[in-house]
Every structure is written in structure tokens, then in C-alpha cells.
């Protein structure tokens, strides 16, 4: 199963919904699309919704960390939401949630970043 990424702009937030499997093969394509979306839209914050991500390995961690650094460098925030227990184990191992915020769902994430629903 391959990866499908949806990018939605809500006010000043880029919402990234990932579906499928994120490995090294999919990572470079995702990175390019994601960077393009950040460059084309006047957005600051990023929400990554992992509800439908069924598999991820360390290549996916690399992409997340790369985008986090870019978003943070521009003074904005990145929030991850709706993570499955399987994918969460990987994030926990890497200590990613010491730096990136994790919330239960997209609504909470949007509220947190001040987007009216």
C-alpha cells in the first residue's frame, strides 16, 4: 500500500492528512509535496493528522523532524494528532514528543492553534 497525502489550508494553518504507509520510498515524495505546500500557501502552523497512517518507519521520523525544524525556524508550531498506538511507539522511541506537541484529534489541534471551527 502506498502513501496518500492531503493538504488543506485553514486560515494560517496547513493541515496534512496522511493515509497508508510512510517508508523511505514514500518519504522523499512526501517531503517535496509538503515543502511545496508550505512555500505556496501563506501558512505558519502545521497540523499532521496520522489517523489513517497504517505504517511508518524511521524514514517517516526523518520527514517529520525535518518539517518540524522548518516550521520552528519560521517561529510557528507543529502539532501531531490522531496517532495510532503502533506509530506512536516509534515516536516515543525517538523522543519526538519531547519537542512536537501531540493531541487527540484534529479539532483539538485546530483549537489549540486558534483556528475557529
Amino acid at each position: 500500500m502506498s502513501l496518500h497525502a492531503d493538504f488543506i489550508v485553514k486560515e494560517n494553518v496547513l493541515l496534512v492528512r496522511l493515509e497508508g504507509e510512510l517508508d523511505h520510498h514514500e518519504a522523499s515524495r512526501l517531503r517535496e509535496a509538503w515543502q511545496q505546500e508550505l512555500a505556496n500557501n501563506n501558512v505558519g502552523h502545521v497540523i499532521v493528522n496520522l489517523e489513517k497512517l497504517t505504517f511508518m518507519d524511521s524514514s517517516g521520523l526523518g520527514v517529520m523532524l525535518g518539517r518540524y525544524k522548518e516550521v520552528q525556524a519560521s517561529g510557528s508550531e507543529m502539532v501531531i494528532c490522531s496517532i495510532s498506538p503502533e506509530v506512536r511507539r516509534l515516536f516515543d522511541l525517538s523522543g519526538m514528543f519531547k519537542i512536537v506537541k501531540l493531541v487527540d484529534n484534529e479539532t483539538f489541534a485546530l483549537e489549540m492553534l486558534g483556528v475557529a471551527s
Binding site: 517531503r31 526523518g62 525517538s94
Partner: peptide, 14 residues
């Protein structure tokens, strides 16, 4: 430079 996380072997060991 390739955005590798450096976690591959750590994941295998865990």
C-alpha cells in the same frame, strides 16, 4: 543531509 533520523538500528534493537 538526506533527513535520516538515525533511529534505524535503535528501532531494530528495541
Amino acid at each position: 543531509e538526506w533527513e535520516r533520523s538515525g533511529m534505524g538500528f535503535t528501532i531494530m534493537e528495541n
